[in-house]
Amino acid sequence: MSNTSAHITASCIIRGNTVVKNGVRVYEAPPDVTLPEFLRGLYDRYSGQYPKFHKMDLLSKLGWAAAEILLQEVPMEHYAPEDTGVILANTSSSLDTDERYAETMKEIASPALFVYTLPNIVIGEISIRHTFKGENAFFVADAFDIPFITGYVQQLLNEGTLQAAVCGWVEQYHSGYDAALYLVEKKPRNGSLPFTANEAEKLYR
């Protein structure tokens, strides 16, 4: 299979109460700010107009906020929705929400929590917000396997299955979290990097 070139046209790394977009630190909260407060801060700073955000679990809020920041000022309207997909991975699946949901089983099981007991719901939330209707996949691994994710997405681009993808890592369990999203496109934009595992790794570390 020939390797047609693709490009990382945007990136967003969120960890340690800090947001780095395209390699530049753009947002920081003090270390004593809790994860729910931090995510609310990101919502207020980067959106403020998406009430569904408040119903999401922390994993979806994290992934949704990362995608929001990733795609700000990046027009995607020229793509057919079915040509844009979301490929994500993490290590804790939806375990944090599984525990919260199980707590409600003792009284009245919460449908609002139950729906978030699947890790791919964050793909759904990002897809709804940005009208991405192409390929989905959610993988669960011990760590962010960048060569695998970049290889899989490259293959989908090569096959013509996708023209653009949001891919990466969205991990959250209790207070621990780590997100790294990449926008990958066949066509470059200003400041884009070659889509390779090495470049993705450099942005992540």
């Binding site: 929705p81 897809s127 009208t131 209707k133 989905n136």
Partner: peptide, 10 residues
């Protein structure tokens, strides 16, 4: 092929 409705989570 896989795809997403981009409509509703449940």
């Amino acid at each position: 092929a896989s795809c997403n409705d981009a409509n509703h989570i449940s």
